[in-house]
């Protein structure tokens, strides 16, 4: 495990270093002072407790969606429906939370966690079924489910749940709130980072254990590595494909916990915009390894927070280009490594 963290860590460090180099190149290209940018990045993101807190907040969401994508990719399926699954899980969780105002936190929070996973899994049910029974390509089906999820939750929020003149639902009962980090460490006060981060980290460990230490996880990886070989060895490939997509959906469904239970306490239309696609990027950089996902999520969160914190100095587009550049670099490097191995 330690060696694993080391090797993954080295990989992500390399990606981080390269992206920093690209960033500074861009900064110089724009005629800005790279030293100033670096200083601001350190002082506003890394050394500012608030900036660090926000980075960790963003990391949390990306761990969830990154894990969802990594699990699916590792098992040979391209789940690009994480965003829709986030909405489905988040919305179901909010609806259940609003319907159960009296429950104490010890019951309510675990229940809502389960419900959000259920919602995400439910949203992957149809693509999973179509994949297993009809061989329908999951890229198409999960993408369609994205559109449906966004439109449906938008509609439900406005038609049934919304607070007038807003685009979000009523607030959940106080018992449904996950504690903010600021409640324990004053230095993080004001920042949105919350106990969901612990849930995400525990989940990363659980996914790792599941894939590498349980017979079912082994089966799923075998299906991803070579479905024909898995079938020849008696693995029921179709039902496993179904399971993979649903499990991936459930992981993505949990991502809403960070925003809803940890931060705003309500469901807001489109709150997870782009999180699904960033999850794909995170999984790519992490080479579909759960431990790597944690570090890759941190890298992308740092980029995002730096983009915001430096927005007054350099245009946000530069950071968007940077995110793509990181993915490019990683894909190129991985292919080269793959050739050598």
């Amino acid at each position: 495990m330690r060696a694993l963290i080391k090797s993954e860590g080295r990989w992500i460090t390399a990606a981080a270093a390269l992206s920093l180099a690209v960033l500074l190149l861009g900064v110089v290209g724009l005629g800005r002072n790279p030293a100033l940018v670096l200083r601001l990045m350190v002082s506003r993101v890394l050394l500012s407790p608030y900036g660090l807190g926000q980075t960790l907040y963003k990391t949390t969401t990306l761990i969830f969606t990154g894990l969802a994508c990594a699990l699916a990719f590792r098992c040979g399926l391209f789940n690009i429906g994480a965003e829709g699954q986030v909405y489905a899980g988040g919305f179901l969780m909010t609806a259940v939370g609003l319907a159960l105002p009296g429950l104490p936190a010890v019951l309510l929070i675990p229940l809502l966690l389960v419900v959000s996973a259920l919602g995400g899994g439910l949203w992957a049910l149809l693509p999973g079924y179509l994949k297993a029974k009809r061989g329908a390509h999951e890229v198409i089906t999960t993408m369609m489910m994205n559109f449906i999820a966004l439109a449906l939750t938008n509609y439900l929020v406005m038609a049934r749940f919304h607070v007038p003149e807003t685009i979000h639902t009523q607030e959940l009962p106080a018992a449904a709130s996950l504690p903010l980090a600021g409640a324990f460490a004053r230095t993080f006060q004001g920042s949105a980072v919350n106990a969901s981060l612990l849930v995400a980290l525990a989940l990363a460990a659980a996914v790792w254990y599941f894939l590498w230490r349980t017979p079912l996880g082994f089966e799923l990886r075998a299906v991803g590595a070579n479905p024909e070989a898995a079938r020849s060895s008696g693995v029921p490939v179709e039902s496993r494909l179904f399971l993979i997509l649903v499990a991936s959906g459930a992981l993505a469904g949990l991502a809403g916990v960070n925003f809803i239970l940890g931060y705003k306490h309500y469901f807001e239309q489109g709150f997870a915009a782009e999180e699904g696609f960033l999850g794909i990027a995170v999984a790519l950089v992490a080479k579909n390894h759960p431990v790597g996902v944690v570090f890759a999520a941190l890298l992308f969160a740092l980029l995002s927070q730096a983009g915001l914190a430096l927005n007054t100095v350099i245009p946000r587009e530069l950071f968007e280009i940077l995110q793509s550049a990181v993915i490019f670099i990683v894909v190129i490097c991985q292919n080269r490594l793959g050739e050598k191995a």
């Binding site: 082994f218 075998a222 590595a225 070989a229 079938r231 020849s232 060895s233």
Partner: peptide, 16 residues
């Protein structure tokens, strides 16, 4: 049909 080419030998021996 027989092997997980990218997986280590021991996993291939375990398959099934």
């Amino acid at each position: 049909c027989g092997l997980l080419l990218c997986a280590p030998a021991w996993e291939n021996m375990l398959l099934g």
